[in-house]
Design a protein around this nucleic acid. Sequence first.
DNA 1: ACCTGAACACCGTTCAAGT
DNA 2: ACCTGAACACCGTTCAAGT
Lengths: 193, 193
Amino acid sequence: MPTAEKRPRADAVRNFERLLETAREQFETRGAEMAFEDVARVAGLGKGTLYRHFPTRDHLLAALLASTFEDLAVEADRLLATRAPLEAYVEWLGAFDRMPAPYRGLRAVLMESLGDDASAIAIACEPLKRSFAAIVAGAQRDGLVHVHIDSDELMTVVAALPDHLRGTEPQHPWLDVVIDGSLTDAGRQARRT
Amino acid sequence: MPTAEKRPRADAVRNFERLLETAREQFETRGAEMAFEDVARVAGLGKGTLYRHFPTRDHLLAALLASTFEDLAVEADRLLATRAPLEAYVEWLGAFDRMPAPYRGLRAVLMESLGDDASAIAIACEPLKRSFAAIVAGAQRDGLVHVHIDSDELMTVVAALPDHLRGTEPQHPWLDVVIDGSLTDAGRQARRT
DNA sequence: ACCTGAACACCGTTCAAGT
DNA sequence: ACCTGAACACCGTTCAAGT
């Protein structure tokens, strides 16, 4: 008995991969606002083919970033299991902050998409959101992070930190300010020791 | 002896004002990404005329916001003169945060422009930046705000707070987190009393 | 000196025709 | 079933011609 999912045509599979590869190159050199048209042209395929595989820019970016998002979810689970709550919280936010670094304009996209639950990116980020939410809940249970902090919103705020304030350091200079502002007095105390 | 500045032609003056007025309407209804073309068309003038008066979108927005920027500078001076340093700091940031509220997309523009000293908006903001810098310096002198906080960067970060996290309250819910993160322990202490 | 709008460019999106 | 690229739309920007 055949599988429910029909296997796509061989040329469709080939084109899908070719587009993804070209998009990745464009994404790295031109940033997240790369021209949709160029991706198709450089890949040597029609625009329609690109639209067939990726109906929106979000779908394309979500496909490009899928493995990055998975890594972040795994990292969150690892930190939750192996570190103290506050340490897990601070370290994961650092990892999340560094993630968009190689891709110009990605922060702006994330900031928009994370809030819109219907977007392909938000859907791809769901596991990662859930894992970070567990870290935040743990830190809140211990009275280290303010209870009114929402983990999804915090991610959005961190993604919104202006790119051009970033220096040569891997970590955004204002991340520490946001983290500190999210901590209770006990959390601040604990962070110093 | 005539003035050094030649007086512009009467129709030029009339058109300038007409464009500004139309742009304000468009800005309020369509947001900061309003179509440049539409402003000219709705004003009943050619596109070239718009470009003559406002070479870039930034020039147009700077003209629209000039009085708002002036108000913020005056307000900063007033707070510096009449309030305790911490109170002036917190209150002015609140005023700055509420300022872009009526204009969709203005935050994104500010976030970009404030960092680029050559932009018309950054130039229009210079008095306001200087006045706020004085407030920050005062609060830092009293050990209430961390010394590594740069007042211009702080403004950029506040402008970058995601619009869609804003609720019905006039003040952005994350402004408090950023402010708290910028304070020293003494500053936090003082804020509670 | 200033205004006008045609003209060009660039790019996103759709869809009829082809394989 | 999938691909192609012409065609349309929208908008920013420039500039030759007009007043």
